[in-house]
Design a protein around this nucleic acid. Structure first.
Lengths: 204, 204
DNA sequence: ATCTTTGTTAACCAAATGGTTAAACTATAC
DNA sequence: GTATAGTTTAACCATTTGGTTAACAAAGAT
């Protein structure tokens, strides 16, 4: 084969590494596997990223920086809590259906190495709950919402939206759904989850 | 050292393997680490369990058989949906606070190897949703519950209860809680989550 | 043209890892 | 006590794995 210089080997490596790390995890991933996936020599991985650890961190940070803006929909948007819940649920689910390995990857690796989150918190753009909490408290005060702790509400919203992607194999087994059924099921959660939450927090 | 025969080496191995597999996962666990944890020679692991894979499966099946009965509280109990949600939430959270690595371990390994769930489904005692679904539909028909798909409700209940144990590092970071705060937070979910769900599904 | 920098490869290496083995030890049956 | 079966250990082994190296190719600078 002719050895034409590739436009961007580094990018190819990142794409391949993302695929392998997100499906196998840090411990299960193999450098040779990533090289094969990228169609390049294994030494290139070290040439561009020095070590498995640094390549992993590049992939992880990229993944996290994809997730963070999604959360800011619910944290820093100007609309009412009700609208934010509706928007977040449909946006987040749509986004995750396109990146189904992302939530599990992040959760899994943060559990494997808790120190990891410390570095993330130092980054600007790390999701901050202050505004959301103030807004929840204000809307409760105005009688627009039933009393609820803002942290609890936040966790409930996240839980209901993320869990279908984390627990997919388990849910599929419990509910006897095949791949197609499951997609339909998740699709319908785009409105179902928002209704469920709003029904609970809004006075009638 | 005197070589007195230990009462039950096999049990010691299982305990050590549980600790190591649940914190490191299949790929991250090392046979030597398990042997050290159990205070025995590495060859003993193979003497009693033949291979890493079989030892892992023994640990995994034991873990899953601990989880399944918890789910049957909400699936096969005779009380009303409202009471079941209340009981399940408090029981499940109490149980998981004692076994905090369990949910993540099961979720992670099921995502790593989807074939795994097939073997589990063959077991008797694998959670079955039929009764729960029939009951939800009946209570909706009687006007005791707002209309909701039983599968969706089931996933919502599970999600709200499990997620605090899966996403602990993430939630701790977002909500700026230390270990002590987090325990208090989870403790208060024992009633908070049930109220949140019932508020949503019960007509007022 | 040729020198230098950058990119790429095949071959290699040391350490780690799951697994095996042969010998030794323990308890029990006879 | 000694034969027998089960248990435990240290040493060993083959393979895998992350990482290195030295030679080589391509492109740009002079």
């Amino acid at each position: 084969m002719a050895k034409t210089k590739d436009e961007n080997t580094e990018e190819q490596i990142l794409v391949a590494a993302k695929t392998v790390f997100q499906t196998k995890g840090m411990d299960g991933a193999r450098m040779q596997h990533i090289a094969d996936e990228a169609g390049i020599n294994k030494a290139m991985l070290h040439y561009y990223f020095r070590s498995k650890q640094l390549l992993f961190e590049a992939v992880f940070n990229q993944a996290f920086s994809l997730l963070a803006p999604q959360l800011n929909i619910i944290l820093n948007d100007e609309s009412s809590i009700e609208d934010k819940v509706k928007n977040f649920t449909v946006n987040y689910t749509t986004f995750m259906m396109k990146h189904p390995y992302l939530p599990n990857f992040i959760i899994q690796e943060l559990n494997r190495n808790e120190d990891f989150i410390v570095k993330l918190k130092e980054n600007t753009g790390f999701p901050n709950l202050d505004k959301f909490k103030a807004q929840v408290d204000a809307e409760i005060n105005d009688g627009l919402l039933n009393p609820i702790d803002a942290d609890q509400l936040f966790v409930n919203i996240i839980a209901l939206n993320i869990f279908p992607f984390l627990g997919k194999p388990l849910i599929k087994a419990f509910t006897n759904k095949d791949e197609q059924d499951y997609e339909t099921f998740v699709e319908s959660r785009k409105t179902e989850v928002a209704n469920f939450i709003i029904n609970s927090i809004k006075p009638h």
